[in-house]
Computed example of a mutant assay.
Amino acid sequence: MEKSILYILHIVCLFVPFLTPAMAWGAQDKSFTVVIDAGHGGHDPGAVGKRGREKTINLSVALKLGKLIEDNCGDTKVVYTRKKDTFVALHRRAEIANAAKADLFISIHTNSLASRNSRVSGTETYTLGLHRTEENLEVAKKENSVILIEDDYQQRYAGFNPNSSESYIIFEFLQDKYMAQSIDFAQQVQKQFKTIARRIDKGVHQAGFLVLRETTMPSVLIELGYITNAAEEQYLLSERGSSALAKSIYQAFLTYKQGHGGTLAPVAAKNVPVLPEQEEKQTGLSASGAGTVSAGQASEKPVFKIQILTSDRVLPSKSRLFKGLAPVGRYKENGIYKYTYGETTDYNRILRLKRSKVDAKFKDAFIIAFKNGEKMNINQAIREFKRNR
């Protein structure tokens, strides 16, 4: 099955004009640039298992992924943040991606738990945002703690303490204009891990990762598996395992790239918020009495909503996937149906609604905004709301 998929993808890539595969800083005439970031390195080993180190696993998968893209996709420039066992500061990784004007940033990591005899296993992919569970927070703390071995981390990261929960509040407002694309790619990665590598799917999540904070393109952080699980560590260290994981990310990359084409601009998708079965006024805030607007009405003020889930098909209005929330709206973006709950021009009210009714049911839900029927940057929307208060 794997060989058949890769053969078909190879044939597809041959239809684009062939160019010499790029090395770390390849030719400038590529139409799509991807930055592959192997986490940790050098004097920073990352998570340590009984037999291996995270930095080695990350680099092995990163190099295999890069080679698959270089060998098969002539229109793509591949940039690596490191190709050897060297230390690269978190801020420098983002600088490399921004300087390359990348279209996609993929940071590769390996997970761990405090117990080295843990049975927990599986892959998960993160986008930038505020953690919704303590488990997600712990993953972010682990990956961000590398700044503590940087010489000037207090000045460089403006006093950010990777071990303090309070420091992560800032990520509530860092769901940038590329969030939708980041989530789309993350979902593709998890799908291929399950299909090609046959790994346990632990889902797509949000958390406050410093390495993603400064990137100016769609970005994800991938956790390949748990080095603290003996069986999974053996898989991660094996040639078969690292190759299957690289092929999975490669398949996700091709699917994502085919859907997004060349250089990505911020999404301004038309809002289609009402399900066919729901032509009446939709608020989702009736219980709280918050100020609402008509779902189909364009507003000169930003309209805030809570995105709860996505689907590749239209879901019925009473789908069990909505977990009892009603009414639920939807809009379509890049071929994906995205479902929302609540609608108001008051950011504080949508935030309270999210915390009181949504977070317990959808731990990775996040707030989005529309203006005049088009999706807009959430940070800009919040600033406009504050100015108009």
Rank of each mutant, 00 (worst) to 15 (best):
377 N>G: 06
355 R>V: 09
306 I>W: 11
182 S>M: 04
199 R>G: 01
1 M>P: 14
115 S>F: 06
265 A>S: 15
81 T>N: 03
330 R>W: 13
251 Q>V: 14
12 V>G: 14
119 R>G: 09
229 N>R: 04
122 G>H: 04
294 S>Q: 14
184 D>N: 13
181 Q>K: 06
268 A>R: 09
386 K>C: 04
208 G>W: 09
273 P>F: 10
57 I>Q: 06
81 T>I: 00
115 S>N: 13
18 F>N: 10
203 G>C: 05
321 L>H: 14
162 P>Q: 02
228 T>M: 01
54 E>M: 07
77 K>Q: 15
252 A>F: 07
241 G>M: 01
270 K>D: 15
279 E>I: 08
205 H>S: 03
137 L>E: 12
293 V>D: 10
150 E>L: 01
270 K>F: 11
233 E>P: 02
274 V>I: 07
89 A>G: 14
367 I>V: 15
129 G>N: 00
55 K>W: 12
380 Q>C: 00
283 T>F: 06
220 V>G: 03
165 S>Y: 05
226 Y>I: 01
258 Q>M: 14
182 S>C: 11
363 K>G: 00
10 H>N: 12
110 T>Y: 01
289 G>L: 00
90 L>C: 08
316 P>S: 08
340 T>K: 00
245 L>Y: 08
153 Y>F: 15
242 S>Q: 15
386 K>W: 15
237 L>Q: 11
286 S>P: 00
196 I>W: 08
146 V>G: 02
106 I>Y: 01
308 I>G: 02
61 V>A: 04
44 D>I: 03
134 E>L: 03
209 F>E: 02
70 E>V: 09
214 E>M: 12
12 V>D: 15
225 G>D: 07
141 K>N: 11
356 S>N: 14
88 V>D: 02
262 G>E: 15
218 P>D: 04
262 G>M: 09
303 V>N: 00
210 L>Y: 07
230 A>V: 13
164 S>F: 12
253 F>E: 07
338 K>W: 05
222 I>D: 00
